[in-house]
C-alpha cells in the first residue's frame, strides 16, 4: 500500500510527541508540589516506596553482608576483650539504674503533689539501618521498621550515645530518617549548665551542628553539654545531643557562632532505637 503524503513514516513519532512531554511535565509538577506539601498524595509515595523496598534491600545487601562478615570474622581475643569491657559497662550502668528507679518514683510523686502532668513515658523500638541516601547533600537513612511495626512519622531516633534525627517518611516495611546534620534540619536544644534554650541547625557536615541565634553576651563555654529541650513537641525532653566544640565571637557580629559536636555517630550508625511516647500517656 503506498504511503499517503500525510502519513508519517516514523512510527515512533508518537512515543516522543510534544503532547506527551507536556502531559508528563504537568504531572511531574503536580507530584512535586504534592510531595513538597505532604498532603493528598503522600499515601501514593508510601505505597510506591513500599513496593520498591525489596529492590532497596537487595541493592544494599552487599554492603550489609560485608559488614556482617567483618563482625563474624573478628578475632577471638578482640571478642573476649570486648565482652570484658561490656560486662564492666553493664555492671556500672545497672548500679546507676538502681538509683534511677527511686528517683523516678519520687519524681512522679512530687509531680502528683504539685498537681501537674508528669513527664511522658517513652517506648523504645530497636531497628537496623538498611540504606543511606546516595545523594551526598541529603543526610537521610532508611531503617527496617515502619508503620507495620507501629512506628509513627515524627518520632525521634537515637543511638546509644545521643539523638540522631527523626522519622520523616513512612515506607510501611521501613521508614526514612532525616539526620540532625542535614541542612534542612533544626533541633531545639537546651544547654545543661545554664538551662538556656536555643536551636541547633545542621550544616551538611556529619561532625558538626551550628547555633547561630545566641547574642554575644551569652554564657556559653567550650565543653558545655546540650540536651533536647522538648519544645516543639517533636523531640522528647532531656536526650543528649552534643557538646560545644567551639565558640567564635566575630567582632561586629551581634550573634555568636557556636559549633557543636553531636554525640551520636551520624556517619557510622548501625543499630538505632526509635523513641515513641507510649499511648494513653500522650
Amino acid at each position: 500500500m503506498p504511503l499517503h503524503p500525510q502519513q508519517r513514516i516514523n512510527r515512533f513519532e508518537k512515543n516522543f510527541s510534544a503532547y506527551r512531554l507536556l502531559i508528563v511535565v504537568i504531572i511531574s509538577c503536580v507530584l512535586m508540589y504534592q510531595d513538597y506539601q505532604k498532603n493528598y498524595l503522600s499515601a501514593l509515595r508510601v505505597y510506591l516506596s513500599a513496593s520498591l523496598y525489596p529492590a532497596q534491600y537487595l541493592i544494599n545487601l552487599p554492603k550489609n553482608f560485608i559488614q556482617k562478615l567483618n563482625t563474624n570474622f573478628s578475632e577471638r581475643e578482640q571478642l573476649l576483650q570486648e565482652n570484658k569491657f561490656l560486662k564492666k559497662d553493664n555492671f556500672e550502668l545497672r548500679s546507676k539504674i538502681q538509683q534511677v528507679y527511686k528517683l523516678e518514683s519520687e519524681n512522679k510523686r512530687l509531680y502528683a503533689l504539685l498537681d501537674s502532668q508528669p513527664k511522658k513515658d517513652n517506648n523504645y523500638i530497636f531497628a537496623d539501618i538498611i540504606a543511606v541516601s546516595p545523594i551526598a547533600e541529603k543526610h537521610q537513612i532508611i531503617i527496617n521498621k515502619g508503620s507495620r511495626d507501629d512506628i509513627v512519622v515524627g518520632s525521634a531516633v537515637a543511638d546509644s550515645n545521643g539523638i540522631l534525627g527523626h522519622i520523616i517518611r513512612d515506607q510501611i516495611f521501613g521508614s526514612e530518617v532525616l539526620l540532625i546534620s542535614d541542612r534542612e534540619h533544626a533541633i531545639p536544644i537546651e544547654i545543661v549548665r545554664t538551662s538556656l534554650r536555643s536551636i541547633a541547625v545542621g550544616i551538611g557536615n556529619y561532625n558538626e551542628l551550628r547555633i547561630n541565634t545566641l547574642p554575644t553576651n551569652t554564657d556559653v563555654k567550650k565543653g558545655d553539654v546540650l540536651i533536647t529541650s522538648g519544645l516543639g513537641g517533636r523531640y522528647p525532653e532531656g536526650f543528649p545531643v552534643g557538646t560545644v566544640k567551639d565558640v567564635i565571637n566575630n567582632p561586629g557580629e551581634s550573634f555568636l557562632e557556636i559549633s557543636v559536636t553531636p554525640f551520636g555517630n551520624l556517619k557510622t550508625v548501625n543499630e538505632i532505637w526509635v523513641i515513641q511516647p507510649t499511648e494513653g500517656n500522650q
Binding site: R45, K138, I142
Partner: peptide, 13 residues
Amino acid sequence: DIMSGSLMGENAL
C-alpha cells in the same frame, strides 16, 4: 526519585 529520596517527579521531569 523514590529510591534516592528526592522529591517525587524531580528526576522524572
